[in-house]
Simulated scan of single mutants.
Amino acid sequence: MKIKIVNTSSHQLPNYETSASAGMDLRANIDEPVILKPLERRIVPTGIFIELPMGFEAQVRPRSGLAAKKGISVLNAPGTIDADYRGEVGVILVNLSNQDFVIENGERIAQMIIAKHERAEWTEVDSLSDTERGSGGFGSTGVK
């Protein structure tokens, strides 16, 4: 699939690090290092603008290494970039650790996945069909 992209940063385009990667890394596009304090959140610019085809979205997700090793996550994970959005891709990072985290220009801060989606059309009814699970949720099926 070909997607139009404008890159105003000095960094390479988002790319897949391995042949089996689902996500492309997004890089911080900042003039100077940013310190993200514990429990602080900030929108970090990437310098890229994309034009997705209708029926697709881009999902912005945390990088597992940053989450596991540094406690850095994407606050609204997965963040959705809609096909009609033309602004700069920004990443809402949050520091869930108890230590400052320094974001450097060009650092890989998140990953982006391109996904097809459907549009729902609601059919209003008076009741839903029965299932074995029923209305049980939030742990109702057990943990083992």
Rank of each mutant, 00 (worst) to 15 (best):
K2S: 13
I3A: 00
I3F: 04
V6N: 10
V6Y: 10
H11M: 05
H11K: 08
Q12I: 13
Q12V: 15
P14G: 03
E17V: 05
E17I: 09
T18P: 04
A20P: 00
S21R: 04
S21G: 04
S21F: 02
A22S: 11
G23F: 03
G23C: 06
D25Y: 03
L26N: 00
R27Y: 15
R27H: 12
A28K: 01
N29C: 13
N29Y: 09
D31T: 11
E32H: 07
E32C: 00
P33S: 05
I35Q: 07
K37G: 01
P38V: 01
L39C: 09
R41T: 11
V44K: 01
P45Y: 01
T46G: 00
T46C: 05
G47N: 03
I48C: 01
F49M: 11
F49T: 02
E51R: 07
E51K: 10
L52W: 01
P53I: 10
G55I: 06
F56A: 04
F56M: 10
F56D: 12
E57Y: 05
A58K: 04
V60A: 04
R63P: 06
S64Q: 05
S64V: 01
S64T: 00
G65A: 11
L66W: 05
L66S: 05
L66H: 00
A67K: 04
A67P: 09
A68F: 14
K69C: 02
K69G: 05
K69Q: 09
G71R: 07
G71I: 08
I72A: 05
I72N: 12
S73D: 15
V74Q: 01
N76W: 00
A77F: 06
P78G: 08
P78L: 08
T80F: 02
I81Q: 09
D82K: 14
D82M: 08
A83K: 11
D84M: 04
D84L: 09
Y85V: 05
R86N: 07
R86M: 06
G87P: 00
G87I: 07
V89W: 04
G90A: 09
G90I: 05
G90E: 10
L93K: 09
V94H: 03
N95D: 04
L96F: 02
L96V: 07
L96G: 08
L96Y: 10
Q99R: 15
D100L: 07
D100W: 12
D100T: 06
F101S: 06
F101P: 09
F101M: 11
I103E: 04
E104N: 13
G106D: 00
E107Q: 15
R108W: 05
R108I: 10
R108N: 08
I109V: 06
A110W: 08
Q111P: 08
I113H: 10
I113V: 13
I114W: 08
I114D: 07
K116F: 00
H117G: 15
H117L: 15
E118I: 10
R119E: 13
R119D: 14
E121C: 14
W122L: 14
W122M: 15
T123D: 11
T123Y: 12
E124M: 14
V125K: 09
V125R: 11
D126K: 15
S127R: 12
L128N: 12
D130R: 13
T131W: 08
R133P: 09
S135D: 15
S135G: 06
G137A: 12
G137S: 12
F138W: 09
F138M: 13
F138E: 12
F138P: 08
G139W: 11
S140H: 15
T141K: 13
G142V: 02
G142R: 07
G142A: 01
V143E: 13
